[in-house]
Design a protein around this nucleic acid. Sequence first.
DNA 1: GAAAATAGGGTTAAAATAATCCTATTTAAT
DNA 2: ATTAAATAGGATTATTTTAACCCTATTTTC
Lengths: 137, 137
Amino acid sequence: MLQVSRKFEYGLHAVTYLATKGFGRVVTVKEMADEIGYSQEFLSKAMQSLKRAGIAISVQGVKGGYTLGRATTDITVADIAIAIEGKPHLVRCGVKADSCEIFSSCHHRDYMNTLQHKIQDLLASTTIHTLLQEIEQ
Amino acid sequence: MLQVSRKFEYGLHAVTYLATKGFGRVVTVKEMADEIGYSQEFLSKAMQSLKRAGIAISVQGVKGGYTLGRATTDITVADIAIAIEGKPHLVRCGVKADSCEIFSSCHHRDYMNTLQHKIQDLLASTTIHTLLQEIEQ
DNA sequence: GAAAATAGGGTTAAAATAATCCTATTTAAT
DNA sequence: ATTAAATAGGATTATTTTAACCCTATTTTC
């Protein structure tokens, strides 16, 4: 349930890594993979997802690499999750709506959606900046 | 990431179903599976997990079935998640602590644990009672 | 004793996740 | 121009997780 995918973990770790390296500093995937201890190729995929979402900026070519696309105050955990895993689809009711006999009285979808929004709101209210700060007490 | 497992969904749906049937009313897995549209055998496993956690009470034998083990005000979404999927282990840093060269300066585990606790707290503060109420506005 | 229910071990099937492979493109340096 | 180092990304394979299924035992009512 509360399990985060490894790709998300890669993405979050990469973002916090870039954040500690300072805004604007370009870092290669190789450096990150070596330092952090992840698979370079898989981390590369995560970075590509972060780039598409504008969370990271890529610089191609020899002196290339990645840097943060915006301030850590403007990157939320939800941003990273969605960039990497897409919008979550929590509700997977076993019965399709049009063949569900109790659909009108069944609020299962509502409950699941409520839950989803709660989690989503929580992650959306957690910026990288606050996450970093909460640690270094 | 934010994806809930089907077994958790089964469990939550079963709990809300039992809740709407009224406290103390014993319902068979077959009835629930038919009404809700889930696999009877798999739902059965979910119920067994809920029973072990005290969320449901089982009655064996011919007139048997399940009923809620305690009031909906005393069952949280976290209870159900843990009963069904066990305690989550969010952090899966690619490097083992004793072979991690940057361990002392790496706060990744802290970030992940912080996140985990935030989600856990959210789910632990969401009771079935409130979930049911929030819908019927 | 028969029937209807939970209990639960064990195996198989399906799906999702993670890893790998390979090639293309971009760009700095020589 | 050529080379080397980097990102971009499609495609495939391997692994792991999840879901489904099978089968037997136990409990309890009638």
